[in-house]
Design a binder for these strands. Structure first.
Lengths: 220, 220
DNA sequence: ATATTGTAAATTGGATCCAATATGAAATAG
DNA sequence: CTATTTCATATTGGATCCAATTTACAATAT
């Protein structure tokens, strides 16, 4: 006898679920910088014991999203302005190269998918969704490069500054500007102009960096 | 009353110890690609329970050094030739920029420390130590940049290809060549020539990349 | 009042136990 | 003899318990 093998997608392990949830909460700023992560509390929230929670926290620390001290626990790690700038610098270095190598490999589907990403971004009136849609757009284009390691590293960098990026988007004309720049990048990709796509990406990122500095300074 | 505060360096947690030991064993190739990590076995080796072992494995997975499957455990993740090349590409992109920014910030101490690093590398007849000494040299110079995030990312990239790098060093004239290139990079730093230090670093890395490809091809 | 000490509660780190799943070998059917 | 099934064993995932340490706060001394 043979059955249609119903793909029972195995439920993920508890530690993975906790990890993803905490990661999301941290990068979106739902738990603030410096806020401690209490193992008991989190375990209760997910109806598990502290064991999966501790594994999740180990991973978060390895990713740099939390810092732990022995017997004192984990706190969400913040970024100084300097550190945030450094990560923007890092992105401005690596992402242009990735998109440059991605452009010649972009399929029609990739371009169409990216188009709908920027369209969704452009059309969305919900600031909460801007962060995700922004990342979707860039990730879609980068994915065509097939450079998995680069993509992983970029993801980590994005995780670390996600909060600040979201803040940029809601501030002043951040969203409108990002939108225009997305379209320009996308058009360069459609035209197969790798160098231009790279340069526009670089400007896109360093522009965000500058506006971050401005905002920080305006708070003094 | 005032005492000299004796800095009782707290013993690290068991999970940290296990993590560091496993990391070292993996990057140095003491445990081979594809080899499973048995929690029980490792726990016995360190006279602990499986709990710290599991936290260590979680971190290793986050670092990309092992891959786990639910209920099947963790195996040391290998790198395909393509993946190894990608990481060399990545390094060739980021490390020149880091050293370029580091050069103007290098103190006499930094340069002296780097000099003794390459001297030790040059003088060492023990191939087992070459990997570490090579990393020491580069890290010392990069450290002057103060770019902590970049340094962390570079460290992870180095971890992933450490095995392959060591293989390069012992092969043919890998060690002699690396040694000459180190000296050239160091002299550019001493001369304060950031652009040249960057370019030499780029060549140093892409040279290693090419010789990796050669070795892989020669195995067919 | 302020600083110091002592103590109980809170919190984390780790050990042990149980449950869920995978693995492999023996038993069985064809 | 080969393929399938059954079942015991090995291994991982998670829960609960205990130990080590920190933290908060009351008691005490100056």
């Amino acid at each position: 006898m043979k059955l249609n093998s119903v793909d029972i997608s195995k439920t993920a392990s508890a530690s993975s679920i906790v990890f993803e949830a905490l990661r999301k909460a941290i990068i979106e700023g739902d738990v603030k910088e410096g806020e401690p992560l209490r193992q008991d509390e989190i375990a209760r929230m997910f109806n598990t014991s502290r064991i999966p929670v501790r594994e999740a926290i180990s991973r978060l620390e390895e990713q740099g999203l939390v810092k732990t001290q022995r017997y004192k626990g984990a706190v969400v790690s913040g970024l100084s302005a300097t550190e945030a700038e450094e990560i923007f610098d890092f992105r401005a270095l690596i992402e242009p190269e990735v998109i440059r190598r991605a452009v010649p490999l972009m399929s029609a589907e990739t371009l169409e998918s990216a188009r709908s990403s920027w369209a969704a971004f452009s059309a969305s009136s919900d600031p909460m969704s801007w962060g995700d849609l922004n990342r979707d757009f860039h990730s879609t284009l980068y994915l065509a490069s097939g450079l998995q390691y680069h993509l992983d590293v970029i993801d980590n960098a994005m995780d670390r500054i996600d909060r600040y990026l979201r803040a940029q988007l809601v501030m002043s004309n951040g969203m409108e500007r990002a939108n225009e720049e997305h379209i320009a990048i996308w058009e360069a990709c459609v035209a197969g102009n790798a160098k231009q796509a790279a340069e526009l990406t670089r400007l896109h990122i360093s522009g965000a960096r500058e506006s971050l500095i401005q905002n920080i300074n305006s708070l003094r």
